[in-house]
């Protein structure tokens, strides 16, 4: 049995070793905020943080994660030292700028943005382009960019 830490809690995983983390999160642990979009790491809807690094859970076999610490959208505020029911600054910026439309990709978008800002607090536009490769069919990119710029201190 594989053990990993999910949102600060150690979890024993029953799923077979080759099961992608995405399905462990969704079907075994009931953490449905991490979304299935493509299954081939192309769309980013399943972006989570693995030891602080943004990764696409649909293409990560859980066996490769033994002992790792995984943060999902549900655990994002706590991972930043906030109360679990609080909003992470990225989530607050998303509300302030009314970013989501259908909202399905936004968990992954927020996780990617939070990881970018953690690693690079003032990203340039080309750096945003390079880091935020998540797909959004509703076309929220202009607002995602504005929100990240604002979090990076731009007016």
């Amino acid at each position: 049995m594989i053990t990993l830490t999910v949102n600060g809690q150690p979890r024993q995983i029953e799923a077979e070793a080759d099961t992608p983390l995405l399905w462990v999160l969704r079907d075994e642990l009931g953490l449905t905020g991490t979304r299935f979009g493509c299954g081939v790491a192309a769309c980013g809807a399943c972006t989570v943080h693995v030891d602080g690094v943004p990764m696409r859970a649909c293409s990560l076999p859980v066996e490769a994660l033994a002992g790792a610490s995984v943060t999902t959208i549900e655990g994002l505020p706590a991972s930043a030292g906030l109360a679990p029911e609080a909003l992470h600054p990225v989530q607050q910026a998303w509300i302030d700028l009314q970013v989501p439309q259908c909202g399905y990709c936004q968990s992954g978008m927020i996780m990617a943005a939070a990881a970018l800002l953690q690693a690079n607090p003032k990203p340039s536009d080309p750096e945003i382009d390079a880091a935020i490769t998540n797909l959004c069919r509703c076309g929220t990119y202009p607002r995602v960019r504005t929100a990240i710029r604002r979090l990076g201190g731009a007016a």
């Binding site: 905020g33 299935f36 998303w94 009314q98 989501p100 909202g103 936004q106």
Partner: peptide, 19 residues
Amino acid sequence: SPARFDIPAKVKGAPLYAI
């Protein structure tokens, strides 16, 4: 342009969709 009702749940990754 009041804040939309649907957005807070969407940024929290709350269970919303059929899936």
